[in-house]
């Protein structure tokens, strides 16, 4: 097991100073975010709690470079369940901003993710409309 030695304890403060990241310090890592997360349900490795753990520990590089922070689709279920008012969905947005600012991911990538979210919504709506139409036939 490789030992983690280099972390930046100031990272949590950095996140907290970003819009959306303000409440990051409230977290007591209960895991309700993960338990209720619809993405964790379909993507076994995706674990919001571990993202929080890495923020609090200060594993800055590992986190900002990981694909994890882009998987959230902003449904805010975690926000409605969270007993400590951490607002994980907003925290993730704060992480993305830092990652873009640091040019770890470029802006076009972020825009593409947003587009994917938008497309998914459009696609869903189209499908539901089609189902309704079929039903009324």
């Amino acid at each position: 097991m490789s030992q983690i030695e280099n972390f930046e304890q100031s990272f949590k403060k950095e996140v907290a100073s970003q819009p959306g990241g303000e409440r990051v310090l409230n977290c007591f890592l209960c895991g309700t975010c993960t338990a209720g997360c619809p993405i964790s349900e379909i993507e076994p490795g995706y674990n919001p709690r571990n993202i929080m753990r890495k923020i609090l520990l200060g594993m800055r590089d590992e986190l900002l470079n990981s694909s994890e922070i882009w998987k959230c689709y902003q449904c805010h279920t975690c926000v409605s369940h969270c007993p400590q008012d951490v607002r994980f969905a907003d925290v993730v947005r704060a992480l993305r901003q830092i990652a873009v600012k640091e040019a770890i991911f470029d802006e076009s990538f972020a825009a593409a993710v947003e587009k994917a979210d938008y497309d998914a919504r459009v696609q869903r709506l189209e499908k539901v409309n089609a189902l309704i139409e079929e039903r009324s036939k």
Partner: peptide, 10 residues
């Protein structure tokens, strides 16, 4: 060892 990450932290 952090049980959440299953990694040894110093």
């Amino acid at each position: 060892i952090d049980p959440l990450l299953s990694r040894d932290v110093a």
